Simulated assay, not measured.
Amino acid sequence: MTVFAMAPDGVRIALHELGDPEGLPVLMIHGFSSNTRRNWIDSRWSASLADAGLRGIGMDLRGHGDSDRPSTGYAVERFVDDVDAVLTQLALDEPPAAIGYSMGARLLWRHAGTRPHAFRALVLGGLPAGDPFQRFDVELAHRALRGEAEPGPMESFIVELAGVFPEHDPTTLVTLAGEVSQTLFDAQQAPPAVPTLLMTGERDRRAADTETLLPLLPHGSFAPIPGRNHVNAPTSGTFRRTASAFLAQHLVSPA
Protein backbone atom coordinates (compact mmCIF):
# COMPACT_ATOMS: atom_id res chain seq x y z
CA MET A 1 0.00 0.00 0.00
CA THR A 2 1.27 3.45 -0.92
CA VAL A 3 1.15 6.14 1.75
CA PHE A 4 1.99 9.80 1.34
CA ALA A 5 3.94 12.43 3.25
CA MET A 6 2.90 16.05 2.73
CA ALA A 7 5.67 18.49 1.81
CA PRO A 8 5.51 22.08 3.14
CA ASP A 9 4.31 23.32 -0.27
CA GLY A 10 1.50 20.74 -0.42
CA VAL A 11 3.20 18.25 -2.78
CA ARG A 12 2.46 14.64 -1.85
CA ILE A 13 5.52 12.37 -1.55
CA ALA A 14 4.77 8.68 -2.09
CA LEU A 15 6.28 6.07 0.23
CA HIS A 16 6.62 2.34 -0.47
CA GLU A 17 7.59 -0.46 1.91
CA LEU A 18 10.04 -3.26 1.11
CA GLY A 19 12.23 -5.66 3.05
CA ASP A 20 11.31 -6.83 6.57
CA PRO A 21 8.27 -4.86 7.84
CA GLU A 22 9.51 -5.40 11.42
CA GLY A 23 13.13 -4.59 10.62
CA LEU A 24 15.33 -1.62 11.38
CA PRO A 25 14.33 1.35 9.17
CA VAL A 26 16.22 2.50 6.09
CA LEU A 27 15.05 5.41 3.93
CA MET A 28 15.75 4.74 0.23
CA ILE A 29 15.97 7.47 -2.41
CA HIS A 30 16.26 6.67 -6.13
CA GLY A 31 17.99 8.54 -8.93
CA PHE A 32 16.80 11.02 -11.56
CA SER A 33 14.07 9.67 -13.87
CA SER A 34 13.73 6.48 -11.81
CA ASN A 35 11.40 5.67 -8.88
CA THR A 36 11.16 3.28 -5.95
CA ARG A 37 9.74 0.47 -8.02
CA ARG A 38 12.32 0.71 -10.80
CA ASN A 39 15.37 1.49 -8.65
CA TRP A 40 14.79 -0.73 -5.63
CA ILE A 41 11.82 -3.11 -5.88
CA ASP A 42 12.37 -4.41 -9.43
CA SER A 43 16.11 -4.66 -8.65
CA ARG A 44 15.35 -7.18 -5.87
CA TRP A 45 16.47 -5.10 -2.93
CA SER A 46 13.61 -6.36 -0.80
CA ALA A 47 15.14 -9.80 -0.21
CA SER A 48 18.59 -8.40 0.63
CA LEU A 49 17.11 -5.93 3.08
CA ALA A 50 14.99 -8.61 4.73
CA ASP A 51 17.98 -10.96 5.04
CA ALA A 52 19.80 -8.18 6.93
CA GLY A 53 16.81 -7.44 9.16
CA LEU A 54 16.04 -4.10 7.50
CA ARG A 55 12.79 -2.36 6.68
CA GLY A 56 13.12 -0.29 3.52
CA ILE A 57 11.00 2.83 3.04
CA GLY A 58 11.29 3.89 -0.57
CA MET A 59 10.57 7.54 -1.26
CA ASP A 60 9.46 8.63 -4.74
CA LEU A 61 11.04 12.02 -5.42
CA ARG A 62 8.64 14.79 -6.39
CA GLY A 63 8.03 14.60 -10.14
CA HIS A 64 8.67 10.83 -10.10
CA GLY A 65 6.75 7.62 -9.53
CA ASP A 66 3.56 8.03 -7.50
CA SER A 67 4.52 11.39 -6.01
CA ASP A 68 2.88 14.58 -7.23
CA ARG A 69 4.28 16.28 -10.34
CA PRO A 70 3.85 20.05 -10.07
CA SER A 71 4.67 22.17 -13.11
CA THR A 72 7.35 24.00 -11.07
CA GLY A 73 8.82 23.73 -7.58
CA TYR A 74 11.95 21.61 -8.06
CA ALA A 75 14.63 23.72 -6.41
CA VAL A 76 17.11 21.73 -4.34
CA GLU A 77 15.75 23.06 -1.05
CA ARG A 78 12.33 21.61 -1.92
CA PHE A 79 13.82 18.12 -2.12
CA VAL A 80 15.59 18.62 1.21
CA ASP A 81 12.28 19.74 2.73
CA ASP A 82 10.64 16.61 1.28
CA VAL A 83 13.05 14.39 3.21
CA ASP A 84 12.16 16.29 6.38
CA ALA A 85 8.47 15.74 5.65
CA VAL A 86 9.01 12.02 5.12
CA LEU A 87 10.90 11.67 8.41
CA THR A 88 8.11 13.55 10.19
CA GLN A 89 5.52 11.26 8.60
CA LEU A 90 7.42 8.14 9.67
CA ALA A 91 7.69 9.37 13.29
CA LEU A 92 10.37 6.79 14.11
CA ASP A 93 11.61 6.27 17.66
CA GLU A 94 15.25 6.41 16.51
CA PRO A 95 16.89 7.98 13.44
CA PRO A 96 16.97 5.57 10.49
CA ALA A 97 19.76 4.76 8.11
CA ALA A 98 19.47 5.82 4.47
CA ILE A 99 20.60 4.79 1.03
CA GLY A 100 20.54 6.94 -2.08
CA TYR A 101 21.53 6.46 -5.68
CA SER A 102 22.84 9.17 -8.03
CA MET A 103 20.51 12.17 -7.57
CA GLY A 104 19.21 10.49 -4.41
CA ALA A 105 22.78 10.19 -3.14
CA ARG A 106 23.41 13.92 -3.71
CA LEU A 107 20.19 14.71 -1.88
CA LEU A 108 21.18 12.61 1.13
CA TRP A 109 24.68 14.14 1.21
CA ARG A 110 23.12 17.60 1.36
CA HIS A 111 20.45 16.63 3.86
CA ALA A 112 22.68 14.69 6.25
CA GLY A 113 25.38 17.35 6.10
CA THR A 114 22.99 20.05 7.32
CA ARG A 115 20.97 17.81 9.66
CA PRO A 116 23.64 15.73 11.40
CA HIS A 117 21.20 13.84 13.64
CA ALA A 118 18.72 12.80 10.95
CA PHE A 119 20.43 9.51 10.00
CA ARG A 120 22.67 6.99 11.73
CA ALA A 121 24.49 5.76 8.60
CA LEU A 122 24.44 6.31 4.84
CA VAL A 123 25.14 4.33 1.69
CA LEU A 124 25.58 6.61 -1.33
CA GLY A 125 25.73 4.92 -4.72
CA GLY A 126 26.75 6.36 -8.08
CA LEU A 127 27.77 9.68 -6.55
CA PRO A 128 30.01 11.90 -8.72
CA ALA A 129 32.28 14.40 -7.02
CA GLY A 130 30.83 17.19 -9.17
CA ASP A 131 27.36 17.96 -10.47
CA PRO A 132 26.16 16.11 -13.58
CA PHE A 133 23.60 18.86 -14.29
CA GLN A 134 26.33 21.45 -14.76
CA ARG A 135 26.18 23.26 -18.11
CA PHE A 136 22.57 22.10 -18.65
CA ASP A 137 20.49 24.42 -20.86
CA VAL A 138 16.90 23.71 -19.85
CA GLU A 139 15.33 25.80 -22.63
CA LEU A 140 17.37 23.98 -25.27
CA ALA A 141 16.35 20.67 -23.70
CA HIS A 142 12.66 21.61 -23.86
CA ARG A 143 13.01 22.60 -27.52
CA ALA A 144 14.82 19.33 -28.24
CA LEU A 145 12.06 17.40 -26.48
CA ARG A 146 9.56 19.03 -28.86
CA GLY A 147 11.76 18.26 -31.87
CA GLU A 148 12.52 21.93 -32.47
CA ALA A 149 16.27 21.96 -31.81
CA GLU A 150 19.37 19.79 -31.79
CA PRO A 151 20.45 19.17 -28.17
CA GLY A 152 23.98 19.40 -26.84
CA PRO A 153 25.54 16.40 -25.03
CA MET A 154 24.12 17.21 -21.59
CA GLU A 155 20.69 18.14 -22.94
CA SER A 156 20.63 14.94 -25.00
CA PHE A 157 21.51 12.88 -21.91
CA ILE A 158 18.74 14.47 -19.80
CA VAL A 159 16.11 14.24 -22.55
CA GLU A 160 16.95 10.60 -23.14
CA LEU A 161 16.73 9.77 -19.43
CA ALA A 162 13.48 11.71 -19.05
CA GLY A 163 11.78 9.45 -21.58
CA VAL A 164 13.05 6.08 -20.32
CA PHE A 165 10.00 5.01 -18.29
CA PRO A 166 6.45 5.45 -19.63
CA GLU A 167 5.00 6.28 -16.20
CA HIS A 168 6.90 9.58 -16.14
CA ASP A 169 6.30 12.89 -17.90
CA PRO A 170 9.44 13.93 -19.82
CA THR A 171 8.51 17.62 -19.78
CA THR A 172 8.24 17.58 -15.99
CA LEU A 173 11.59 15.83 -15.62
CA VAL A 174 13.37 18.29 -17.93
CA THR A 175 11.91 21.17 -15.90
CA LEU A 176 13.05 19.41 -12.72
CA ALA A 177 16.61 19.04 -14.03
CA GLY A 178 16.67 22.71 -14.99
CA GLU A 179 15.60 23.90 -11.53
CA VAL A 180 17.97 21.51 -9.73
CA SER A 181 20.85 22.73 -11.92
CA GLN A 182 20.46 26.24 -10.50
CA THR A 183 22.04 25.00 -7.22
CA LEU A 184 25.02 22.89 -8.21
CA PHE A 185 26.23 20.14 -5.89
CA ASP A 186 29.26 21.21 -3.86
CA ALA A 187 30.52 18.25 -1.84
CA GLN A 188 32.74 20.45 0.33
CA GLN A 189 29.73 22.20 1.84
CA ALA A 190 28.76 20.34 5.04
CA PRO A 191 29.67 16.73 4.18
CA PRO A 192 27.93 14.02 6.25
CA ALA A 193 29.52 13.23 9.61
CA VAL A 194 27.85 9.82 10.11
CA PRO A 195 29.37 6.53 8.87
CA THR A 196 29.07 6.68 5.08
CA LEU A 197 29.79 4.00 2.51
CA LEU A 198 30.33 5.18 -1.07
CA MET A 199 29.72 2.61 -3.82
CA THR A 200 30.14 3.07 -7.57
CA GLY A 201 30.12 0.70 -10.52
CA GLU A 202 33.57 -0.18 -11.86
CA ARG A 203 32.36 0.88 -15.34
CA ASP A 204 30.50 4.00 -14.23
CA ARG A 205 31.81 6.88 -16.33
CA ARG A 206 29.30 9.27 -14.77
CA ALA A 207 30.71 8.80 -11.26
CA ALA A 208 34.26 7.59 -11.86
CA ASP A 209 35.62 10.08 -9.31
CA THR A 210 33.56 8.95 -6.29
CA GLU A 211 36.63 7.94 -4.26
CA THR A 212 37.94 11.51 -4.33
CA LEU A 213 35.16 12.39 -1.87
CA LEU A 214 36.60 10.20 0.89
CA PRO A 215 38.89 12.87 2.42
CA LEU A 216 35.76 14.97 3.08
CA LEU A 217 34.11 12.25 5.17
CA PRO A 218 35.22 11.75 8.79
CA HIS A 219 33.77 8.23 8.74
CA GLY A 220 33.85 7.34 5.06
CA SER A 221 34.68 4.17 3.14
CA PHE A 222 34.45 3.06 -0.47
CA ALA A 223 33.57 -0.21 -2.21
CA PRO A 224 33.34 -0.77 -5.99
CA ILE A 225 30.38 -2.47 -7.64
CA PRO A 226 32.00 -5.07 -9.92
CA GLY A 227 31.20 -4.99 -13.63
CA ARG A 228 28.46 -2.35 -13.43
CA ASN A 229 27.87 1.06 -14.99
CA HIS A 230 25.76 3.98 -13.80
CA VAL A 231 22.51 2.58 -15.17
CA ASN A 232 22.68 -1.05 -14.07
CA ALA A 233 24.52 -0.74 -10.74
CA PRO A 234 21.30 -0.91 -8.64
CA THR A 235 20.67 -4.44 -9.96
CA SER A 236 23.98 -5.72 -8.57
CA GLY A 237 23.81 -8.38 -5.87
CA THR A 238 27.11 -7.13 -4.51
CA PHE A 239 25.65 -3.64 -4.14
CA ARG A 240 22.52 -4.97 -2.41
CA ARG A 241 24.31 -7.25 0.02
CA THR A 242 27.20 -4.91 0.86
CA ALA A 243 24.93 -1.91 1.41
CA SER A 244 22.44 -3.89 3.52
CA ALA A 245 25.17 -5.38 5.71
CA PHE A 246 26.81 -1.98 6.25
CA LEU A 247 23.56 -0.30 7.28
CA ALA A 248 22.49 -3.18 9.52
CA GLN A 249 25.84 -3.07 11.29
CA HIS A 250 25.54 0.63 12.07
CA LEU A 251 21.89 0.47 13.06
CA VAL A 252 22.55 -2.33 15.55
CA SER A 253 25.82 -0.89 16.84
CA PRO A 254 26.07 2.72 15.65
CA ALA A 255 29.53 4.31 15.65
Score class of each variant (00 low, 15 high):
F79L: 06
D186Y: 08
H30G: 01
Q182G: 07
F165P: 00
F222T: 07
F239Q: 09
S221H: 08
S236R: 02
L24R: 15
L24S: 11
T36D: 08
E202F: 03
P21E: 09
R143Q: 14
S48D: 12
S244G: 13
G53N: 08
V252Q: 14
R69Q: 13
M154N: 08
D84C: 03
D209Q: 13
A162Y: 04
G237W: 09
V83E: 06
R120C: 05
E211I: 14
R69K: 15
R205N: 11
R206D: 05
I13M: 00
P128Q: 11
E211F: 03
S46E: 10
E160D: 14
D68T: 05
P195R: 07
P234K: 03
A233Q: 07
R44I: 04
A118Y: 11
Q249V: 00
P96C: 14
V180D: 00
R115Y: 03
L122Q: 05
A208C: 10
Q134G: 12
R69A: 15
N35V: 01
M1F: 01
H117V: 02
A141H: 04
S156N: 13
S221F: 04
R241V: 13
A121E: 09
L27T: 03
M154W: 00
L161D: 01
L214A: 09
L92P: 13
G73H: 04
A144Q: 06
E167C: 06
D42S: 12
I99D: 00
P166H: 08
V11M: 07
D93W: 00
Y74I: 15
I158M: 10
G152E: 11
R240Q: 15
V159E: 13
E17G: 03
